[in-house]
Design a protein around this nucleic acid. Structure first.
Lengths: 109, 109
DNA sequence: CATTTATATAAGCAATGGCTTATATATTGA
DNA sequence: TCAATATATAAGCCATTGCTTATATAAATG
């Protein structure tokens, strides 16, 4: 799998709002079981299951089985292809980058 | 248009490899006419035209008419929604971010 | 073992997407 | 005004996508 293909996979996976919402919820909650994600979701259990599979296939989340439950968390390197690609376009978002840089430094202290 | 919708638009637009290639070429060449993009493209003129429209609608490129030619360049703020969104997930790509930070500093000097 | 709970898979459907060919609309210049 | 060039739009086609309902699998528990 080439870098371009991985990037395409990440972009396509995050492009769907419902699926991105699932990802964001996993990120926010740290670790969630699939059931938890179904509750409070607009779509059905199979739909959530399909989205989780897509997120996993794209390398964006990791699953950990615990009995009947499967817990999901964000994969640390999942956003890597996206970040790397954006790195090539620094000149086009340098200003915002400065903001992030400042933010990071504030967070450190 | 909400921030989430803009992000969806940017992600969907960049998710197609052919269209992303067009964007990358515009970024690389600085300013290109549509004809220039058609030459050396795998797809037809209408296809390129459709991709350019999508890129423009997503706010990723800007067009400048000059006689019969329309020149495209990357819109500085186009990647903004993506960068902003990624900002919320710093913890998941902090390491790569450090690399970028280092790279930026090297570039400055 | 039987039932309940958690998740995945199958099948089908309507909508979307990206491409093509054909044609329309500028814009320029002879 | 006519022909050539540059780009856009229209229409149609096929593949993909996201959803649904129905069903299958897996694991825990009585």
């Amino acid at each position: 799998m080439t870098a371009a293909m991985q990037l395409t996979s990440v972009l396509k996976t995050l492009a769907d709002p419902t699926r991105r919402a699932v990802f964001e919820r996993i990120a926010r909650e740290g670790e969630v079981a699939a059931t938890g994600l179904v509750h409070g979701s607009k779509v059905s259990q199979p739909a959530v299951s399909q989205h989780l599979r897509a997120l996993r296939d794209a390398g964006l989340v990791i699953e950990r089985r615990e009995g009947r439950h499967i817990h999901y968390r964000v994969a640390p390197k999942g956003l890597g292809p996206l970040v790397d690609w954006l790195g090539h376009y620094q000149t086009f978002w340098a200003e915002r980058f400065e903001n992030l840089e400042r933010l990071l430094k504030e967070t450190e202290s």
